[in-house]
Design a binder for these strands. Sequence first.
DNA 1: ATAATTAAGGACAAAAATATCTTTAATTAT
DNA 2: ATAATTAAAGATATTTTTGTCCTTAATTAT
Lengths: 142, 142
Amino acid sequence: MFSKKTEYALRATIYIAKHSSEEKKLSIVDISKAINSPQSFTAKILQVLTKKKLIHSLPGPNGGFYITEPTLQAPISCIIDAMGENEALDKCVLGLKKCSTANPCPLHEQYKKVKFQLKEIFEEKSISKLAKELKNNKSLQY
Amino acid sequence: MFSKKTEYALRATIYIAKHSSEEKKLSIVDISKAINSPQSFTAKILQVLTKKKLIHSLPGPNGGFYITEPTLQAPISCIIDAMGENEALDKCVLGLKKCSTANPCPLHEQYKKVKFQLKEIFEEKSISKLAKELKNNKSLQY
DNA sequence: ATAATTAAGGACAAAAATATCTTTAATTAT
DNA sequence: ATAATTAAAGATATTTTTGTCCTTAATTAT
């Protein structure tokens, strides 16, 4: 569905949401270990999220990444958007440039319904809610 | 959703299904022009489909690609499979290696439903039926 | 048989995605 | 102030995807 970049972005954000606060920041080392993603690559991704103010960062001892209320209450679609992958949810399955009700590919109507549901999933629940649902007793196998 | 390779494979197959027969074969030039795909790249893709007997080909004058009943009656999931992209429909949204009901990512249950519907779409209608639904009066904008 | 036509096959090229490494800048603890 | 720690930034490397080109093989029309 999504690129690695977006997958890591989502995993990192959910992890940060679950484990960080302004008092307890998380280093890129910790984060990438926890979500099993390449460290430097993940650093780049978090740089983007930081620039877009979806997460925050502070260098230095006890520095790291953390997340604040506005993003905690936002849906994960904002992370997907930040990674530039929102269009993935608008594209035609067959890759037609102009596929619409007026000029549909043979899968248009059915696929449209699924895309709508997907969008709902990504816009429905807040990041904080998802983080809470994440069970960390049974550790997830990334 | 899918790679270019798979998109071209689907478009080409549907096009061949609509416009070819054993008596009227289509050249790779015609096909790639019609579906607006890079010719040589599309040739490689059709080679794969041909090897897997999903379509057929014959070299020489009046040669080209054509399709026969077994594939016409098959669902497009067989094309997706041939392109090795069936797994795309099984993967976890977050890219977790082992995401299951027993050990779910926070989106597992909702996403599972959507994946099920997607699979249904790709397994439901036959290629021939899809080809018939393709309106070619209003030319599709590939 | 020969020439023309078309797909098959192999080598190569370009672009995009994924990933790493090194240096710099910011912050903090001492 | 200094050293330690951490993210930011930039350059570079690797892999995968996407795409091209050229030669070979198969088929057909003449």
